[in-house]
Design a protein around this nucleic acid. Structure first.
Lengths: 338, 338
DNA sequence: GTGAAAGCGCTAACAG
DNA sequence: CTGTTAGCGCTTTCAC
């Protein structure tokens, strides 16, 4: 049984370009040209090929096409996590641009583990992608070597503090940490604490914290107390973390959080326990999430242009310009919590 | 220049299996067998092939491999959006299982548009994926036909109210709507309103609302007032929506939101305006997001097992069992807002 | 246990 | 403008 249907469907075996060519009464290459709108052909052949393809329900085989033309339309996107909305945001920006340029993203998740990053990148590379987008600048030596030897565009995203391979799009996490400290100090806070998540894997959060601490130090201050939870960042972790920190250090007048998820948790803790913000305690985050912006008291934080990072990264990966570092900066949001 | 390095890298042209075979002094097919651990070969040849591959920095070309073996290790994942954490959650569950089974997810985003869904699925299909995971049961006729004719596993996720193509994993949105209404009524609320986002595209939210309204009707009640914002759901939209609704209908004692993002917005509105929850106004959502769970007053909502849906869907897509409908249900969370 | 040969479905020169 | 001829890099019989 090998029926046909006008709605572009078929029953039976897989239809190949050869089938279409035969049905249209033309050669394979002619059919190929028509289907790709490449090269020249008469209007008449065009019609017959298109008609044949449609009525047979032909679906081109890009695997074969890619192998023959030696140029894939796949772009690898490597992100640390899908649990935090930050990375889907980057992916969203990248996706929009990539699809618009005829590319397909292939995503891989590392769980913040450099070894896993190495293995997913190796696996991604075997699809011979046209380009690769990865989060951060820190990789294992072998990962760096693979990326460098792949002879494709490589974009490293979300951080500019370090050496890049090809294209770097992001902002300085160190500067973000420093600016955060300066903001708190300029508002008069002096007893400052920190609530963070596991920094051994989240290198960008670690850079922010290091710079934050250094900036305090330069002003003769130091972090009065810190609470590091040994887990991924989350609202709950921020809530519990602040609770524990305040128990140990009741005199704090401001707390810097490793990101907005953590900070919102801290904010909720204060709401639940009648701690007046910012009079009794100030809170500062990082990322500028929607939930932080829409809270009764908008969170003071740093807005990171995540979607834009994805967009620009994708645009450059699709381009053939020179290597470049694009620092698109961030924005300090003076909310109501400082 | 064609140097070699022990760290698995190379400089120069792309290394192919032929190169590895030559370097190891064996035939191509032997090298292929060794590299895939398939078939038989002596320990001696094994060593020499592996050594050659490593020192040449060989990266297998899966494009060629797939074409030759006629079976790809790609699985298409089609989701409506990346803005709402719900879909990254599903993707996360799917990713874990897929990667564990040796597959690579290829994601595509539809922006809730059936036409876009049709075109991204057509494009995904051209990569000859081993399987396909898509959100929801409603597709254009042609999408359905393409999926049916692709002769691959197809999993439709997050909804069980309707006809599926092959595998269906999710829960009943209608039932969720009904249960939500029953919960509010059992708590004694009688003046119930609704704040929702654009339902013309989010069919699952539309089903919940329809069932919610029907359940009220069966009990002799009706929705006193509703506010539909013509945009995607967001915290801000929920906040503004509730504000407008309360202006028109100040007598409401409970509001059903199209999802947790919207409900959290409503919650924030109440916090900001001193509206006591749940005494003056009750709030009910849908999804069971982290932020809803960790709020000072945990939101009353329906917890949807999104990650699990992705996991089970992926597991079934990788299997070769019969078609099936798996309803994994949802959980009513009796929070502090009702 | 191993190698030679024949494709997988398509694209890319070339002639015609 | 169109058809023929070679492969792309790998897997897969099938003899040896």
């Amino acid at each position: 049984m090998q029926s046909e249907a006008e709605d572009g469907t078929q029953t039976g075996a897989m239809i190949t370009l050869t089938d279409v060519a035969r049905a249209a009464g033309v050669g394979e290459s002619t059919a190929s040209r028509v289907l790709r709108g490449h090269g020249s052909f008469s209007t008449k052949t065009r019609e017959s090929v298109l008609t044949a393809a449609r009525s047979l329900g032909y679906v081109p085989n890009r695997i074969a096409g890619t192998l023959a033309s030696m140029g894939s339309k796949l772009v690898g996107v490597v992100i640390p996590s899908l649990s935090n909305i930050v990375f889907p945001d980057v992916l969203r920006g990248a996706n929009t641009v990539l699809v618009g340029a005829g590319f397909q993203p292939v995503v891989a998740v590392t769980d913040y583990d450099p070894e896993r990053e190495e293995s997913v990148i190796e696996s991604l590379l075997s699809w011979r992608p046209a380009g690769m987008m990865v989060a951060g600048l820190e990789h294992t030596e072998r990962t760096g070597a693979m990326l460098r030897n792949a002879r494709i565009r490589v974009a490293e995203l979300l951080d500019t503090d370090g050496e890049g391979i090809d294209i770097v799009v992001g902002f300085s996490n160190r500067k973000a940490g420093r600016v955060s400290a300066q903001h708190l100090m300029s508002r008069g806070y002096r007893c400052i604490g920190y609530v963070g998540h596991d920094l051994s894997l989240d290198l960008r959060a670690a850079k922010r914290f290091a710079a934050f601490r250094a900036a305090l130090g330069e002003a003769g201050l130091s972090i009065i107390g810190e609470e590091i939870i040994r887990a991924a960042s989350s609202i709950e972790a921020g809530r519990d973390g602040l609770a524990r920190l305040l128990e140990r250090c009741p005199d704090l007048d401001a707390v810097y959080f490793s990101n907005d998820d953590m900070a919102i948790g801290g904010y909720f803790h204060c709401l639940a326990h009648g701690i007046t913000i910012p009079d009794r305690l100030a809170i500062f985050g990082y990322n500028g999430l929607d939930v932080a912006r829409s809270a009764p008291q908008p969170l003071s934080t740093i807005l990171t242009p995540r979607v834009t990072v994805g967009e620009i990264g994708a645009r450059l990966v699709c381009s053939d310009g020179p290597s470049a570092v694009v620092d698109i900066g961030f924005e300090l949001i003076e909310g109501a919590t400082t």
